[in-house]
Every structure is written in structure tokens, then in C-alpha cells.
Simulated assay, not measured.
Amino acid sequence: MSTILVTGASGQFGRLVLDALLASGKVAPADIVAASRDTGKLAAYAEKGVTLRTADFDDTATLDAAFQGIDKALIISTDALAVPGQRLTQHRNAVTAAKRAGVGRLFYTSLPNAETSAVTFAPDHLGTEEAIKASGLAYTILRNSWYMENLFLSLPSALQSGTWYTSASDGRTSYVARADLAAATVAALLADETGNVTLTLTGPVGYTNAEVAALVSEVTGKPLAVVNLTDEQLAEGLAGAGLPGFLIPTLVSFDANTRLGHIEIVTDSVETLTGRPSTSLKAFLEANKAALAG
């Protein structure tokens, strides 16, 4: 039986992975190691028999201990975005610790087209992928497309005003439900893979923002018009809305990345791994109608 480590286990994605691992029945709870800076947030999983370990990506000593005796390790990318370079340093710390501990296989949550992506933090992902490959450890890189849940960042306020301001133009996004990504990740963790693998995990269809708006209107019964702006105009609007200055370039880069076609790729990797159809965007919107209303 393999020992599986999940870093960032107390986050939304980490918890979904833990839940899916436990539900699979294919790994004993004690062989699941949930790591977090604050293991107190994982007490409910300890009650289910999951092993807890402290892992602070800024503290290499905790990483060395966390990766010890691990067969398969899932490194979920951290949320350290405010300080340039910090996240890549954190990830490299984790890869180095995994190498020192002799981990059998590394898994990492990246993003589509890491080499060309216009997203401001894409270099963190590409740099992490490169560090993993340079480590000599066997690896599975999971390039996760845009969460359907990310629509909650913009759609509730857009629905209230009836206008969705964007610079994505006619670019398409292959939205995928977070739970589907977690299920696919667990399937990959439980597979008996031997070679090195890079997979792009997406939803079943790529949508323009106009098509998303039409679905949202259909589901909610509220009108939603899409207004296309330049990146500069979008940045000005976000600043006027009071968003923190450091965050604005990243938010604008999301739309620019879509417009440039870097997140339109559609694959069947989720369905192949999980053995079931992916959640459709319309079904997701219908299930989350109340959240969309804000």
C-alpha cells in the first residue's frame, strides 16, 4: 500500500482530494498524510484516521519531516502571490525536500500552457515544473484549467449591475468543476503509472464570456450584457472599484490569457481518469444559482 501525502490539505482543493481519497476505499486512512501549516484545521480528518503532518513551505525542516516515508506526494500550489518569487521558492523547497526524502513520485497542480500563458503567476508554475523534472523523481504534472468556481469572483456583482466588463473578447475558457479536478487527481494518485506524465485537465467545452453570460441569464432569469474593454480600460475600472493595486495586473492577465487563446484547450483527461462525464457548465450554474445571485 502506497503512502500518499497531500500538501495544502486544509485548502478547498486539498479537502476535496482528501475526501475523494477516503471515499475511494483504495487506500487506508492511516496511509493518507494530510499536510498543512495549521494541522488544527484538519482535526476532522484525524478523527477519520488520516495522518497529519505540519508543512510550512517557508520552513525546510518541516518539509523534510512531512515528506519522510512518502511514496506519492501531491504538491498543491500555494497561494503566496503577494510577494514576487515567494511561491516559486516555496515550491522549489518542497521539491528539494521530496528529493531528499526519496519520494517515489511527485504530483503537481499546474496550469495549461505554462510555457506561453499570459497569467502573471504562470512563471511560478513553469519554474516548478522545471524543478520537478530536474529532480530526477518520477512525476505527474496536472495542468488544471480554470475552475468553474472562479466565476463567483465576477458574476455576482456583474449580475447585480447587469453588465460584465471583460477584456477577454472572443477567447474561450475550458471551465472545469473543482470537484472534477479533485476526482481526476485522486485517480492519477491511485494509478500504477511508471513513466513521466503531463496532463491538461479541462472541462468538456470551451466558452466565450458571451456564451457564459447567455447561460447565466438562462439559469437565473436575469439579463447579463458583456462589454468588451481593452486591458488598460479593465485595469482602470478595477482600480476605480477599489481593488488592491497589486492584484489588478493579475486579474487583467486572466482575461488577456483567455483572449490570447491560452486556456481554450479541451481534453478528455478528466473523463478518462475518472471514468465518468465531467460536470457541464450549465449544470454547475444551475446547482449554484443562489451563489450567483450574491
Rank of each mutant, 00 (worst) to 15 (best):
G171N: 05
G195L: 11
L190C: 06
R172Y: 12
A187H: 15
T194G: 12
R172N: 06
A184Q: 02
A179K: 14
S174D: 13
T173N: 14
S169R: 03
T166H: 06
D192N: 09
L189E: 00
S169Q: 14
Y165N: 09
V197Y: 11
A183W: 03
D170E: 08
T173A: 13
G171Y: 05
D170M: 13
A182E: 02
D170C: 12
L181Q: 03
G171K: 09
D192G: 10
T166F: 06
T185C: 11
V186P: 01
A191D: 00
T200V: 00
R178T: 05
V197L: 06
G195D: 11
T185E: 08
A182V: 02
A179S: 09
L189Q: 00
D180R: 04
D192V: 06
L189K: 00
A168L: 05
W164P: 03
R178A: 08
V186F: 01
T173I: 13
G195N: 10
A179M: 10
A188V: 10
E193Y: 09
Y165V: 14
L189R: 00
A177F: 11
R172Q: 03
S169H: 12
A187L: 10
E193G: 10
V197I: 07
S169W: 01
T200G: 02
S174F: 09
N196W: 00
A182L: 04
T185L: 05
T166Q: 09
A177C: 05
R178K: 09
Y165E: 10
L199S: 01
A168H: 13
A184C: 07
L199F: 04
L199K: 07
V197N: 02
D180M: 03
S167D: 07
T173K: 08
A179E: 04
A168W: 06
R172C: 06
T173D: 14
W164S: 07
V197M: 09
A183H: 14
T163E: 10
E193C: 04
T185Y: 01
G171D: 15
A184R: 01
T194V: 13
A177I: 11
R172M: 04
V176A: 13
T163G: 08
T166I: 14
L190V: 15
R172E: 13
S174T: 12
S167Q: 06
D170W: 08
A177E: 13
A191L: 07
R172F: 07
D192Q: 15
L199A: 02
G171Q: 03
T173C: 07
A187C: 12
V197G: 06
N196F: 01
S167N: 12
Y165A: 07
A188W: 05
Y165G: 15
T163Y: 06
A187N: 15
L181C: 12
A168Y: 08
R178W: 09
D192E: 14
D170A: 08
A183C: 11
D192S: 12
R178I: 14
